[in-house]
Structures are given as structure tokens and as C-alpha cells.
Deep mutational scan, measured.
Amino acid sequence: MTSCHIAEEHIQKVAIFGGTHGNELTGVFLVKHWLENGAEIQRTGLEVKPFITNPRAVKKCTRYIDCDLNRIFDLENLGKKMSEDLPYEVRRAQEINHLFGPKDSEDSYDIIFDLHNTTSNMGCTLILEDSRNNFLIQMFHYIKTSLAPLPCYVYLIEHPSLKYATTRSIAKYPVGIEVGPQPQGVLRADILDQMRKMIKHALDFIHHFNEGKEFPPCAIEVYKIIEKVDYPRDENGEIAAIIHPNLQDQDWKPLHPGDPMFLTLDGKTIPLGGDCTVYPVFVNEAAYYEKKEAFAKTTKLTLNAKSIRCCLH
């Protein structure tokens, strides 16, 4: 018999989150649709729960009410004593943790798909938090293969000092899905179709896995975050240069030392320094102006996964 890495157990509980950011409308629209008619997301033997994560922000069509829901799922915020004085999103995070967690427990949901849009030209993107997770690498390989020839990129946010504390991190297997470009507060049919297909293929993978299909060893190309880059700023902290036209919409493309990065209003080009080629992502993302992030630098690498098969009882 072929030796293989056996994944822990079959997958039982899956959640699909929309509206973690209330103005990213593809996930909101799909989740609302699936709450009314969820036939397309159901798979035999699998509990799939669509869920609106930040209903107040969705109602106002804004990213958040008090603070970013997708950055506060750490033990400090989840452990705060519940009171009306807490920011709305912290209270909501505790409610979500109660419903789908608790985080880092045996009772937490197996998989959470968190649906997002970006204003950046990132196409279909899967966000991975753990480079050693054979199950998710296999799932992402399946999704990428199923979507081809449509490109699907994998963004690895594993980093020693950049801690995200994402909404989906309460699950055993957290999956971020990011599709763009799409303006905030807008629905685009092409973007919706791409996100819908990503979810379909992900659920198909889980179904095949649960039925005992063995997935042979595989490898995927990923883009691992190195650092986030702020806009150049003046002495008052105001933005002093904008994304250069040569960099705009060039997510995932190589940016070499000396290539144009920013452009000042008086026409001066600010190039990339250093001696390493990087791959920019979230270029000129609207939501990241407040976070002082013009783009993120990534490096390209390959992740390998062992063969996996479900432990059938």
C-alpha cells in the first residue's frame, strides 16, 4: 500500500463567511444568496454554514464600524470581559468565536472560507496562513488546477512579526479568498463568478477527501510576504508620492531593483532599492491607505505537500 500522510479526520463542519468587511460585496451577495438557497454549497455528509460576519458594517456598506474585524481574533480580544464599552467588532468577534470556535479547541469548525474583495488587480487569490499544512496545500492545488487556465495565486502570510489574527483563524483550516479588482461597494459579475467557482472547487475537494480519495504528493507556487511598504510621506505625515503608473495593476509581476515604484507630484520617480527582485501584491489597495500600506513585497517559492487521505471509520 502506498505510504501517505493521513489527515486527522474527515471534514464535518464548514463555514463560509461574507461581510467580514461590509463594503466587499461579492461575499456579502453570495452568502445572502446561499442563506436563501444553499443547494449549490451542500455536499453529502458535510455541514456547510453561510454566515454574515459583520452585519452592521454590511448594512452601512462600510469596511467596519469601530475597528477591523479581520485583525482582532487574538486571545487578548477574544478574552476581554464582555461589555457595551467594547468596540462593536470586538464584541462581534467574541460572538463569532462562540459560534464557530472556540479558537484553538477541538470544537472549532474544521474549515472557514472568508470571502473578500480587493481594489487591487490580484485576480483569484487564496490566502494561506501555514506553509506546513498538507491538507490546505492539497486543497489549493486542486482549486488552482480546477480553475486553469484562469490564474489563481496563493498568498502566504506566515511571518515572524506580522500577526494578522484573522476572522477565519478560529477554524482548524483557515482559508482566505480574495478576488479583484473590484471597487468597494460595487458588485461585478465576473468577480462574483470567479469567487463562486473557487468555493465550488473547494467544496468538491472536501467531498472527494471525505469519500476516501487519496491525493498524491503535489507542489504549489506561493508568494510569501516579506514586508509592507508605506507611501513616501512629508514631515507632516502626508502622502508625498503615489503608486507609479508602471507599478499600478502589476500585482504578482516581478519588481526589480531600480524599477519605478512611486511618483511625486513634481514628476520624480522613486525606484525600488535593494538588490532583490520582489513580487508586489495589494498594490494601491483602497482599504490600506489608513493602514499606511502602499503594497506588500513578496518572494516566490514552492511548497510541497505529502499525499493525504481521509481516515475512514
Rank of each mutant, 00 (worst) to 15 (best):
T2W: 07
C4V: 12
H5P: 15
I6R: 14
A7P: 14
E8F: 10
E8A: 12
E8C: 13
E9V: 06
H10E: 15
Q12R: 15
V14G: 02
V14R: 05
V14Y: 05
H21F: 07
G22Q: 09
E24Y: 02
E24H: 08
L25H: 06
L25I: 10
T26R: 05
T26M: 03
V28F: 11
F29W: 15
F29N: 14
L30V: 03
V31I: 11
V31H: 04
K32D: 09
K32G: 09
H33T: 07
W34Q: 01
I41A: 00
Q42Y: 10
T44A: 13
L46N: 03
K49Q: 12
T53D: 02
T53E: 02
T53M: 07
N54K: 02
P55V: 10
K59H: 11
K59L: 10
K59M: 11
K59S: 13
K60L: 10
C61S: 12
R63A: 12
Y64S: 11
Y64E: 08
D66K: 07
D68Q: 03
D68Y: 01
I72R: 10
I72N: 12
L75N: 13
L75D: 14
L75W: 13
E76K: 12
E76C: 12
N77L: 12
N77M: 12
L78G: 10
M82L: 14
S83W: 09
E84A: 14
E84N: 14
P87C: 11
Y88D: 07
Y88V: 08
Y88A: 07
Y88S: 07
V90N: 09
R91A: 15
R91I: 14
R92H: 07
A93N: 07
Q94L: 13
Q94N: 10
N97D: 12
N97I: 09
H98K: 14
F100W: 07
F100P: 05
P102K: 11
K103R: 15
D104M: 12
D104W: 12
S105L: 11
S105A: 13
E106Q: 13
S108A: 14
Y109Q: 01
Y109K: 01
Y109H: 06
D110S: 00
I111G: 01
I112Q: 01
I112G: 03
D114T: 07
D114V: 02
D114I: 02
L115G: 04
H116R: 08
H116C: 08
T118N: 08
T118M: 04
T119F: 02
T119P: 04
N121K: 07
G123N: 00
L126P: 06
I127N: 01
L128Q: 03
L128T: 01
L128S: 04
E129S: 10
E129R: 07
S131K: 09
R132H: 14
R132G: 14
N133P: 03
N134H: 14
L136P: 04
I137R: 06
Q138R: 05
Q138M: 00
H141Q: 07
I143K: 03
K144P: 05
K144H: 01
K144I: 15
T145G: 06
T145R: 12
L147V: 11
A148N: 10
P149W: 04
L150P: 04
Y153D: 02
V154M: 02
V154H: 06
L156E: 01
L156S: 04
I157L: 13
H159W: 06
H159A: 12
L162G: 15
L162N: 15
K163C: 10
Y164W: 12
Y164E: 15
Y164A: 15
T166L: 08
R168K: 12
R168A: 11
S169Y: 06
I170P: 09
I170N: 06
K172S: 06
Y173F: 14
Y173S: 07
I177S: 04
E178M: 15
V179S: 03
P181A: 00
Q184S: 13
G185W: 06
V186P: 04
L187A: 09
L187W: 00
D190L: 01
D190H: 06
I191K: 03
L192D: 02
L192S: 07
L192H: 00
D193I: 10
Q194N: 08
M195S: 08
M195N: 01
K200F: 09
H201E: 06
H201K: 01
A202G: 15
L203C: 00
I206R: 06
H207I: 11
H208W: 09
H208T: 12
H208M: 15
H208K: 14
F209E: 05
F209R: 01
F209A: 02
F209H: 00
E211P: 05
E211S: 14
E211F: 07
E211A: 14
F215H: 00
C218G: 04
A219H: 09
A219W: 07
I220F: 00
E221W: 02
E221H: 01
V222R: 01
Y223F: 12
I225L: 15
I225A: 15
E227F: 05
K228Y: 11
D230I: 08
P232K: 04
P232S: 04
D234M: 07
E235R: 10
N236D: 10
N236S: 11
G237I: 05
I239D: 04
A240G: 09
H244E: 05
H244L: 05
P245R: 01
P245I: 04
N246T: 11
Q248L: 13
Q248S: 06
Q250M: 11
W252Y: 14
P254Q: 06
P254N: 03
L255M: 10
L255P: 06
H256Y: 09
P257D: 02
P257C: 01
D259C: 03
D259S: 07
P260M: 00
M261W: 05
F262C: 04
F262E: 02
L263V: 09
L263F: 07
L265E: 01
L265N: 09
D266K: 08
G267E: 06
T269C: 09
P271M: 08
G274W: 03
D275F: 07
C276M: 15
T277H: 04
V278K: 05
P280D: 05
P280V: 04
V283H: 05
N284I: 04
N284Y: 03
E285R: 02
E285L: 05
A286D: 03
A287N: 14
Y289S: 15
E290G: 14
K291S: 10
K292Q: 11
K292P: 07
E293R: 11
E293Y: 07
A294P: 03
A294T: 05
F295R: 02
F295V: 02
F295D: 04
A296G: 08
K300Y: 00
K300P: 07
L303W: 03
K306R: 12
S307T: 09
S307Y: 06
S307N: 07
I308C: 00
I308R: 05
L312P: 15
L312M: 12
H313F: 09
